[in-house]
Design a protein around this nucleic acid. Structure first.
Lengths: 233, 233
DNA sequence: TACCATATTTGATCTGGATCAACCTCCGAC
DNA sequence: GTCGGAGGTTGATCCAGATCAAATATGGTA
């Protein structure tokens, strides 16, 4: 694994407070790999053998049942995914696929569990990570149950715009994925965007500009108990 | 606290593997209390000062935004709730209220966090509990996004019927709560019940009997990645 | 550059589930 | 018992969002 990647991983809150020997051991068992776009990394129902860390690219977590599919999350670098299944040693509840060519580190789940037992700093970080994951899912469920489609889109855009300059920001993924994540069809998303034009949102292709944040906030009523702050830098 | 209650708590997977001194210390800081029905125990947005354990009665976890409300879960004895907020030392994302007169133990969150650091058995159990909570929320979200109202009700009934005899089982809560939990209105729930009569479900007041499990399963297509097994005895 | 495949938008229509309005039914208090 | 109020059901209607169909845009590739 590249030295630089190692350092990026070391900086994650999950690994930041490990002792160096424990971290070294964990990395020793891990290996990184570059995957092409649209590759299925994980299929729901399989045993959780690896904790995954996305270093470059992007990964979609999705679920399906019968002939229906839904996007549960998009994981962007640098972040881990499917920690819960690894800790429980249980089958994955979601599938994962690369959206772009991606560099991903695979850490054997057994080693993660071993590190948990041996390194108190890592144990604490694991709990914090899982608890935060839990809380973000609570937010997601609240969002789905309490807001309508237009409100969900507005809230998402406000969240994304936190780190945007005057020239707005670019949607980090295809609109059909965003639609699925927000629990609507692509057609509905398109119409929701159009409806938000009257509430301070300007859109041009993938670039979004919030021209009137106050108006959008008035419509959406953002709420720290529903909308998690972005923690991408 | 009553000796019997202490023992019930000790049997929970969360506390089962603690050392006795650590458990004693945790219980020393805790106190139990009986609350009347319909009392708000926790309001969303407040600081998470206590881990709660329901010993008797039932507690609803719900969320609200603007003038809308939704039931997120019903917690039945013996079980804990809001562990994630306690571990993160963050504001509750959900409110909680008693549905019946309930006996509840309150354990100061600081002591829970201290026990986590001191007792490896408890640390492991905490992670398992959080990971399982995470997974059950993933299932809830998948359920909401992938199934329609009738399918959600059918899946819920099949899950509940696992431990039921020939005379069926009694719904553990009011139908309007069940409706809200399943993401629909009481009217829609009522109609969904009626629609399921053609698929092997007989209902009389609060008592439900699955007269033709095969027919219901054919409609609902239960799936271990969507429907969590009940672990009430 | 031209072409093709896929994403997106737009329009028309449909429908699951919400809403509104009665009405019923159960149960606890008196 | 009966009265009152909340929960539950039923019917009528509405509407947000899905579906279906077709036209455009976009991006990657030869």
């Amino acid at each position: 694994m590249r030295e630089e990647d190692r350092n990026d991983i070391r900086k994650l809150t999950l690994f930041r407070n490990m002792t160096s020997p424990a971290f070294d051991e964990l990395m020793h068992a891990a290996y990184d790999q570059v995957f092409p776009a649209q590759l299925e990394l994980v299929r729901q129902g399989e045993a959780a053998n690896f904790l995954h860390v996305v270093l470059e690219g992007a990964v979609e977590l999705y679920a399906n049942w019968q002939d229906r599919d839904t996007t549960m999350a998009v994981v962007q670098p640098v972040a881990t995914f499917i920690l819960a299944a690894c800790m429980r040693d249980a089958p994955y509840l979601m599938s994962a696929r690369t959206l772009q060519r991606s560099r991903i580190v695979l850490i054997p789940a057994v080693d993660v569990r071993a590190a948990f037992s041996r390194d108190p700093g890592f144990a604490l970080a694991t709990v914090q990570e899982l608890a935060e994951g839990y809380r973000s899912l609570v937010r997601h469920a609240k969002n789905l149950k309490l807001r309508n489609a237009r409100e969900r889109l507005g809230a998402y855009l406000l969240q994304r715009s936190d780190y945007a300059g005057a020239q707005g920001f670019v949607l980090p993924q295809e609109k059909r994925l965003l639609a699925s994540y927000l629990g609507m069809t692509p057609e509905s998303l398109s119409r929701a965007f159009k409806a938000l034009r009257d509430h301070g949102v300007h859109i041009d292709g993938m670039r979004v500009t919030i021209t009137d944040p106050a108006a959008l906030k008035a419509l959406v009523q953002t709420d720290s108990l529903l909308d998690s702050p972005l923690n991408i830098p």
